[in-house]
Design a protein around this nucleic acid. Structure first.
Lengths: 238, 238
DNA sequence: AAGTGGTCTAGACCACTAC
DNA sequence: TAGTGGTCTAGACCACTTA
């Protein structure tokens, strides 16, 4: 026999799936619910904690406890290590910084879509190479809005990537990442850097990193030699 | 002033970052810790619950509570809706079933790497088209190990995708997804289906879906016309 | 074997927020 | 402003896991 609070969880879940309770219904106040079930309020709270954590219940002071979903809401998640992989920062790769400049949003096509941001951006440009190899397998431009300027020393003196430098310097954390993967024909410059023929199809990954309230932190454009780089994603529940 | 248990959380986190406590250290038993801090065990448990949920502590019966990380471990997660997008199942797209056959693992290159699985697989083959369009933008082969055979009726009579049919028929849930994105030259057959020239570079996405204890549920190989399809990933904390 | 976290009880006061 | 969830106490017994 499983724990009492788990039984209560399952009972509520079953009441929902049977139609006895519906999305939008409010449950009785915790203390009332407890005495109805003949258990202590702590037990009810453990059950509700569980149901809240899986996205079935929402609790608000004064407003009570409400059913907001029929089933447990699966959350697929990737661990921290994967966020580096997401940005193609393998631990066995090295970043070669090429330049740090200031650019105007009208100068760079990737920035033109970024409305309501500052006009000036920091552009960090470089390439990434496998350790023990000499020809880069990927090139990367990172654009940082003016509000996060001033990280140049960190980038030049440490092994931080741009987002790590910003996290460090401004005491913020990445809270959201979007990524768009597409195929483009590589430019003359890219081809030269990665040792490819001009016009070869390469994998382009446009990533945006946000902090806190959807504040843009960096915009990264990377292109990779598809014969030496694959994008790997691994997500698991919880 | 924040809640007592939160203060205890932060105190422990600070003790870790200051070096007073280290990864690998064991904390005093909950009851002992509670009396040392002059609070009740319930309060300690709430604090430990918090620290456990952010990946800083691990609790094991008899073995005690151990520090396993220096900082909160950010978990980037994608919601359920994104899992469909991950598998390129946009809500405004339609799947055109072409064939359901049984194949031997030696017949298909994608299956040869899959050691320790059954020899026979169900192959579900088809293409995906935008609504209002006639030429598919992607083709897809899904391989299902023999243990999940018997889903053919569901695939033919409903709009389920393969993984949904399996979830339905066997009462299981996808718990892990891996995905490998690469560039390949499209075959004659693919080119014909998607209206491309033979040899055009297309985006190939190999996905594996697992249920429960890393049991393989399906293996999907999809190729997309890069001019009409981009892979979009969106992950956020919590 | 026994010490640990897991579970559970029966209270209490409080802060906040939605009514 | 009153009712709600949030927090906290001081106990208790138990099952399990690991030393």
């Amino acid at each position: 026999m499983s724990a009492l609070y788990r039984q209560i969880c399952e009972q509520i879940l079953q009441q929902i799936s049977s139609g006895e309770r519906k999305v939008g219904d409010r449950l009785a106040p915790e203390s009332e619910f407890a005495s109805e079930m003949g258990v202590s309020r702590s037990t009810i709270r453990m059950a509700f904690n569980e149901l809240e954590s899986i996205g079935v219940l929402r609790r608000r002071k004064r407003a009570g406890t409400e059913i907001i979903a029929t089933k447990p809401q699966p959350k697929f998640s990737m661990s921290t290590s994967s966020i580096n992989e997401l940005l193609s920062i393998g631990h066995d790769t090295e970043f070669q910084l090429e330049s740090i400049t200031t650019v105007h949003s009208s100068d760079v096509s990737s920035l033109r879509d970024q409305h309501s941001e500052t006009d000036f951006w920091l552009e960090v440009s470089g390439s990434r190479t496998m350790k023990n190899e000499s020809t880069p397998f990927g090139i990367n431009q990172v654009y940082v809005p003016a509000r996060f300027a001033g990280i140049e020393p960190l980038l030049e003196s440490t092994d931080f990537s741009v987002f790590q430098a910003i996290e460090q310097a401004f005491n913020v954390s990445v809270c959201r990442v979007t990524q768009l993967t597409s195929i483009v024909q590589c430019s003359e410059k890219d081809a030269h850097t990665m040792g490819l023929k001009v016009g070869t199809s390469v994998l382009q990954i446009d990533a945006t990193l946000y902090v806190q309230e959807d504040t843009l932190m960096e915009l990264s454009v990377a292109r990779f030699d598809p014969s030496r780089f694959n994008l790997y994603t691994d997500v698991a529940i919880k």
